[in-house]
Structure formats: C-alpha cells, structure tokens
C-alpha cells in the first residue's frame, strides 16, 4: 500500500494489449480471478453493478484472468457477461507482481497510479465495505 502499482501489459478480450499506464487518471479496481474459484464467480455480478453505477464517475474495473486455459475463462465469461474490462494472464506474472495470496484478490489503484488498498477474497458482506472505500476515493457521496 502506498507503493506505485507495478506496470503490466496484457491481452484483453479482443487480444489487443491493455497497458496499465494508459489507465492512469482513473480509479482502477484491479481484480485477479479464475473460473475455478467460487468467490471469484460470485464477485462478477457485483463488479457489473459497480461498473454500471460508478463507471461514469471515473471508476475503471479491470479483471485479470489467471486460468491456465483461456477456454475455461471464456466458458464462464459467456454466462457472467461482464460489462467491465477483462484481461488474460495465464502465465501468472501480474498476480506475482502484485503479491496475490488468495483468490480472488482486488487492488484499488488511485488516480496517480498508487496502490490505495488491497483485498483478499470476496464475500457479499465485505463487498459493501469495499464499495464505500471506492466511493470515498472517487469523492462520491451517497
């Protein structure tokens, strides 16, 4: 926390590269997920909601998939239908760089590209707290 977010360049759904540097200026919710991880799957409807409600306020969600096989991820994405950005890192270079210890792990990167918060795991009870934190960082009050 407080450290600059490690840079990366990963292919997205359209195979075009997604560069973290190009997202600086937005509040980034970086999520590491896999299709085989139950809580990760649960977090998708929540992230969809987050994107739909706070996307206009400057929140950018980037969900990095760490499945070894892209086809496993695609099968899940077909039912989850994310409205936010998805990237693929089967080699697991980014979770290593971000020191991921549990699945899923989410990292909040502030507008200057500095890691503001990090959360391990996903539960609906904790999700409300994370959302409040995001709203605080965005400067949105409800």
């Amino acid at each position: 926390m407080g450290a600059p977010a490690p840079d990366f360049n990963l292919p997205g759904l359209d195979n075009l590269p997604i560069d973290l540097k190009s997202l600086v200026g937005k509040l980034i919710y970086l999520d590491f997920w896999a299709s085989w991880c139950g809580p990760c799957r649960l977090s998708f409807p929540w992230m969809n909601e987050l994107h739909d409600q706070l996307g206009d306020q400057g929140l950018h969600i980037l969900a990095v998939n760490v499945d070894a096989k892209r086809s496993d991820a695609m099968r899940f994405l077909a039912e989850a239908r994310p409205t936010f950005q998805v990237a693929f890192d089967p080699a697991g270079l980014t979770p290593r760089a971000y020191n991921v210890r549990a699945m899923p792990t989410s990292v909040i990167i502030d507008r200057r590209g500095v890691i503001a918060a990090s959360h391990a795991g996903f539960s609906t009870s904790n999700a409300a707290l994370v959302r409040r934190e995001i709203e605080r960082l965005l400067g949105v009050s409800r």
């Binding site: 590491f32 896999a34 085989w36 991880c37 760490v66 499945d67 070894a68 496993d72 697991g92 979770p95 290593r96 991921v100 210890r101 549990a102 699945m103 792990t105």
Partner: peptide, 11 residues
C-alpha cells in the same frame, strides 16, 4: 503452489 495456480486442485 501459488494462489492463482490452484486450478487443478480446485477440480
């Protein structure tokens, strides 16, 4: 085994 490498273990 790293957290993101447990796909096979999760089967």
């Amino acid at each position: 085994v790293a957290a993101w490498e447990k796909g096979t273990l999760a089967r």
